[in-house]
Amino acid sequence: MRVTLDIGRFNPDAPNAKPYRQEFILEVEEYYTVLDSLIYVREYEDPTLAVRCSCRASICGSCAMRVNGHASLGCKTKLISVMDKDGRVRVDPVGNMPRVKDLVWDMKPFWDKIRAVDPFLQPEGPEPEEEYIASPESMLHLVGVMGCIMCGACVSDCTVLEVDENFLGPAALAKAYRFTGDPRDGKTKERLKELNEYSGIWDCTRCMECVQACPKGVAPMERIMALRDKTIAAGIRNTNGARHAEAVSDFVKKSGKLDELRLVPRTYGMFNPMSLNSLFAAIPVGLRALRRGKLPPIIPHKVEGKENLQAVRRIFDKVEGKK
């Protein structure tokens, strides 16, 4: 099978080093992965091509890269699944991290953020003589997060990191979840308080890029959502994010619908003087919207029919009551 690899390259040793693209036309086997074809280039076409790789079996996490613009593992991506009708595949280094050479990037920012979440178990009290006793259910859900191979694919495609490099990002937050969810850890509340700060769990925009990019099914965003839930449940609620989630829940329970008008003050915290600034900052948009007749209705919409409203409330009571 013929494939055209269009590789984003960069040689920092070259004078006036600039990124450039280079095409390789290869005859390869149908079972070849993107990584197989890059190794082929490195071994037989151009030994200067730099790419990190080792296991070829999606467990070492070395070969995250962008294939046709989206992050994945080179070794887990079959060529045949990503070639266009002309047999072309575009390969680039991951995003949101500085480039070193060709497909190799600097992972320092990645690891700095992992370090920032105190990524180690911190049990409380004396260690038991034997193992900690914990139900299989309390541990099994952590195996999915432990499946994270720290490849950086999620961080590469994170839309928040594109505009704010301070965001902890999906990998570090998923790692943090792994400890807050561990029954052996004694620092859950402290961890949640930390994660509740600026650049933490509430800055995720829920865009699902990390869920889509993760080659191991870790679904970092869903871990972030679980952290939000835990934080609210732990009584740490003095954030716009927590108030936002609570407000949406209250509105839907009350009327079956969102109430965008009231969502603003509820999120900023009506009686929170610290939030007054942000509240005022939101007003010009509101006034402009008002002039355009765009502002949400003053009397919020409801689902029609009393019985429907009751049914919605009943679901809330039943599900939330059980919690």
Binding site: R206, H244, A245, E246, V248, V252, K257, V303, N308, V312
Partner: peptide
């Protein structure tokens, strides 16, 4: 008579 989907926000709670 259908309610809001939750918009992903309700789901995080």
């Amino acid at each position: 008579g259908a309610a809001c989907t939750g918009a992903g926000v309700l789901q995080e709670k």
